[in-house]
Design a protein around this nucleic acid. Structure first.
Lengths: 191, 191
DNA sequence: GCAGTATGAATGAAGG
DNA sequence: CCTTCATTCATACTGC
């Protein structure tokens, strides 16, 4: 998992107002690019479509290396951060001491799609309820370092990456037969 | 930004590969969990059934805190993003003058987020291929610094017709009236 | 050089 | 499934 980290971009451009250098790794927008993007944003563009992204990217490529994804991410981030700042501030300003229901109020209204699927395919009863262990401390159990290999030796960590064909088939068959009340057992021990 | 600490999550995890810490708010898969999930995915499992999800979840819980929904979402996201990622988004809009590199994609996974939109929303034909087709010739053509286009037609579309006329004008003036800028032009007419 | 910060990139989680 | 939001991770940049 240790990234290869190929990050060694020689980027000379800075906020000062230039746009030279720029080689690899992560995109480093030139001031011109940022300017255009900002203008577009201020113009009301929040979530550009594919076409728009492409065009913007193409145009901006004149000022320097850029890819579509950069434009996409830029807008995503910019929008998100604008909102984030907004949120933080507003919370601080008129906090009514009772306004805590939209930030980290996690769970309780659960995910629709997930529930729907769960509910349909095979009533998991308290599939979600299982999650209701918030009053337990066992949550902290997992903070244990990775030295708890005893009971479940399902995943030989040193065998990842490659597996035999028969195993693939097994998996496949399992996957193919899971419609109603699948008698299938997904034992991950095949790994 | 400092405030990042909105939550109370002690996220000690990082790209370094770990499995400790992390226990609040959003699920933070350990490397082992990711590994297993990835393997399952690679094995052909795309949309696990409820039972499968449950089993996977149960098994993965050995490595750390996890809930069924996490597994569910993981597969959904991974599948979607993987599919679109496959779309090859390395649009080298900017021709490599002499820079033939092939080391920028090796580190982590690429983006997967924006790809989705790219592939589907609009041009189902080819999004990236286009970049290879056009050699930015025409791009430069109407990017001539000297050529000042009166156009500032932002977005002919209407997806976001939020901007007001004044703003268009502002942009326009900005574009057409750049006293101290050489070849810089902010024409957004390409959209 | 390291700390702090701004921001690009990735992905978990939801909504529709 | 597709689109979007939110949070987080990683890195470029700036200042000390």
């Amino acid at each position: 998992m240790d990234e290869g980290m190929s990050g060694f971009c020689i980027k000379a451009s800075a906020a000062g107002g230039n746009g030279t250098g720029t080689k690899c790794g992560r995109w480093n927008p030139t001031t011109e690019q940022v300017k255009v993007l900002t203008e577009l944003f201020r113009s009301g563009l929040r979530t550009p479509s594919t076409d728009q992204i492409q065009k913007i990217s193409t145009q901006l490529s004149f000022y320097g290396k850029i890819e579509s994804k950069n434009v996409f991410y830029w807008f995503q981030n910019h929008k998100a951060r604008e909102r984030q700042k907004r949120r933080k501030v507003s919370i601080s300003v008129h906090d009514d001491h009772h306004n805590h229901n939209h930030n980290h109020d996690l769970h309780h209204h659960q995910h629709k799609d997930f529930i729907r699927r769960m509910d349909k395919i095979s009533s998991p009863k308290h599939f979600l309820e299982v999650n209701h262990h918030h009053h337990h401390q066992q949550v902290y159990d997992h903070l244990q370092p990775e030295r708890v290999m005893e009971t479940l030796q399902l995943f030989p960590l040193n065998s990842f990456g490659e597996y035999s064909e028969p195993e693939k088939l097994m998996i496949r068959s399992m996957n193919a037969n899971h419609d109603h009340h699948p008698p299938l057992d997904l034992r991950l021990s095949f790994l």
